[in-house]
Write a protein that binds this DNA or RNA. Structure first.
Lengths: 96, 96
DNA sequence: TGAATATCTGAGCAAGTGTTCATATATTAC
DNA sequence: GTAATATATGAACACTTGCTCAGATATTCA
């Protein structure tokens, strides 16, 4: 399988986005629909700052998308690729 | 989507295995069949030591499997889940 | 306007990661 | 046995990462 160095780096970056338990849990919550930063923080038992930092990374990777409503910012998954990756990983973990 | 903390960690570990360009390139090479450490090192332009260190991680994650023949050790992908993850990631990178 | 709320941001730091280098182990050939 | 080859391993080090903390920005409400 031929693979350019650039694509290897892009692939690594893609998987890096899911290589942290906090981010995985954020994705898992967003699978059920959009959620604000505060609600995420409460569910995850993390500070809002920590969640916001992680969301920034996920946003830059185009894993999540933000929608602002008043002073709240609601996040949701950007496309269904993320969900596919997540489900395939879960399958591997559960009966691999 | 309910997700236990344990599974979040396991998922993160799974994706961590693919979160480095060197490992991604190793996987890409092994998609074409088994290969020895020296051959991998040459193709990847890495030291054999560095490759060996990475292979250990991939082995512990059950991503690759080793077969010893004389003084050479041939590595191959352990199952097809890895390939599926890889291809799905590539798809996302190429037309995401 | 000012206070309260929701989120974002930058600095700092402890912990983790990937490499190199030197050395150890294992196997083959002599 | 010794020498040569192939891989593995541990320590050290630079670099990255994810958090906390303090403070900035943006929006709503009185």
């Amino acid at each position: 399988m031929k693979l350019t160095e650039l694509k290897a780096i892009q692939l690594a970056e893609l998987f890096s986005a899911l290589s942290d338990a906090s981010r995985v849990r954020i994705i898992a919550l967003l699978l059920d629909g959009e959620m604000g930063v505060g609600a995420l923080a409460e569910k995850l038992n993390m500070t809002e700052s920590a969640v916001s930092h992680q969301l920034r990374g996920l946003r830059q990777m185009r894993f999540v998308r933000a929608r602002k409503d008043g002073r709240q910012v609601f996040y949701r998954l950007d496309d269904d690729h993320v969900e596919k990756l997540y489900r395939m990983g879960l399958e591997h973990v559960e009966h691999g």
